[in-house]
Design a protein around this nucleic acid. Sequence first.
RNA 1: CGGGGUGUAGCGCAGCUUGGUUUAGCGCGUCUGCUUUGGGAGCAGAAUGUCGCAGGUUCAAAUCCUGCCACCCCGACCA
Length: 601
Amino acid sequence: MRLSQMLFVTLREDPAEAEIPSHKLLLRAGYIRRIGSGIYAYLPLMWRVLQKVSQIVREEMNATLAQECLLPQLQPAELWRESGRWDTYTQAEGIMFALKDRQERELGLGPTHEEVITTIAKEMIRSYRQLPLHLYQIQTKFRDEIRPRFGLMRGREFIMKDGYSFHADEESLKKTYQDMHQAYSNMLRRSGLSFRAVQADSGAIGGSGSQEFMVLAEAGEDEVLYTEDGQYAANVEKAVSLPADAENSIFTSYEKRETPGTDTIEKLCKFLKSSPTQVVKNVLYQAVYDNGMTVLVLVIIRADQEVNEVKLQNELTKLSGNYGGKTLLFLTVPDAEAQQKWAAKSLPLGYIAPDIGDDYIASHKQVNSKFLRLVDHTAVDLKNFVTGSNESSYHVVGANWGEQLKLPENVVDVRKARPGDRAIHNPAQTLQSARGIEVGHIFQLGTKYSKAMGATYTNEQGEEVPLVMGCYGVGVSRLAQSAVEQSYDKDGIIWPVAIAPYHVIISIPNVSDAAQLQAAEQLYDQLNEAGIETLLDDRNERAGVKFKDADLIGIPYRIVTGKSLKAGKVEVVERATHKAQDIALEEVVPTLKQWIDAAVS
RNA sequence: CGGGGUGUAGCGCAGCUUGGUUUAGCGCGUCUGCUUUGGGAGCAGAAUGUCGCAGGUUCAAAUCCUGCCACCCCGACCA
């Protein structure tokens, strides 16, 4: 491609809309253009990058014998009602763009494709002989994100590879899951990314095991906790660890004490000169289930620990049935306004005890009349601890479960693991923290969707049983941007060779010099013939402009047909290092070919 | 949705507090000509704006008031 004929517009200044380096650079270098919030045009250079990434993804998927297909983006609401996700996807998270057609039929713009694929499986898979089966597609997904961010990192329209596998049993699922783990590792390695596979929460997708593939970068939205020995890595949402040991209580007998102005743990501990590990805090949450039922949840946890809201949500979702709901819609810490809606009298905020009376909850059809009390493991073994008294300005000290306070029945793990905590597999290891960009996520779904939608097959025994499923996603456009986030310098993007839009750019310092022009044209033809993707900067610009642009757009190798031409040589510069060397004209193609092959393999 | 912020030329910004001196300006980019030609050149000239939108106040509004819209940042969501 000749730059003189290309839509090529670079910016000298950072666009005001961009915050993180990769977003600024993609805009400045003319790869993308914002059309609306979370909606971007992929311009020609970007599209080539996305094609490269897609191709790597495709090759790795095909190597596992997965089959490519293309599913509809316009999806009938009834499919989503069947799986039970229409409400959660259009109401709670509200992530699906929902619309009506001229017949008033409800449709959704596909945020994911479990429903469509399960329908196909239901209709087409009859026998165990057809299993296992793995279908995937690469296409645009639509999600009405609560907050689109950082360009392609979190768009409302983005390119994703999603794959769905069907199995006769868990064992077969695990095999494919392992294959996917390998395929995903290959994709990211081939794309030139530094990454880590971590244990993950399955979230709204559901199912049992899942792992995320995190591209390590400071701008990442996720926190990863891992150990140096490489034995453990998990998303902070999912991570488990051993908490620090509790200190011995300084109190020996039960007593109610006046503790004025101690509505935070910090103030309380200072006042009592007690360690927060000897304090039980009681955190109030408000859960709303899909049947409209509100449940007040009291989380009882050691005061030096924090509540992991993802774990809490999972616990509450498990309990949905107790309240007549199917799923949890909202989980919030009720503010003063929210409290007014159900509180029978004003709450002793900051002084709540584990046994706070259910008479604080006014009688209301849509509000459960009792607190749901969940006690975290960290609070269970404490002796002579400090906690609230249900009376403002008073706490109790020296309290014990089974004596002054009854230990609630629901003992759970809702504690947030933190960097510095000891690891469970080996307490000598401590958790380290890193930021990551989630570019891939693989799930063992099990029979969640197949059961809900009646997707069954006939097994060897002639019984009709639900299909066992897995699903596997890669954010193709996100992956491309995270490559930039991981690889740039003050001059611009440094694309990994495997996903660069072009391998080589030939910069002609002076287009009015016939010798330079002729040498460049000849090299351009030779490189293209050799299958090396080449840009020719034949614009009538000064050399400095061309060098700046070449660096900005991040093409791995730059050829300059300049001074050394007299000696029958051109200068070849590696973008990543700016290392330059003169190479004889006839050696250029074989040399570059070798470099590129080495970089891509 | 809650909190914070911004909308002025393709991009980055000033002007707004204290309405009139602005036929609305600066830098970059764009166009024309000449010179220059190895790290975003110089000189000369030129074009480009519903000042986010709609009302209102006023003799007079980019500037003051009201409403709306869009976008960005912090939190819940996720590939």
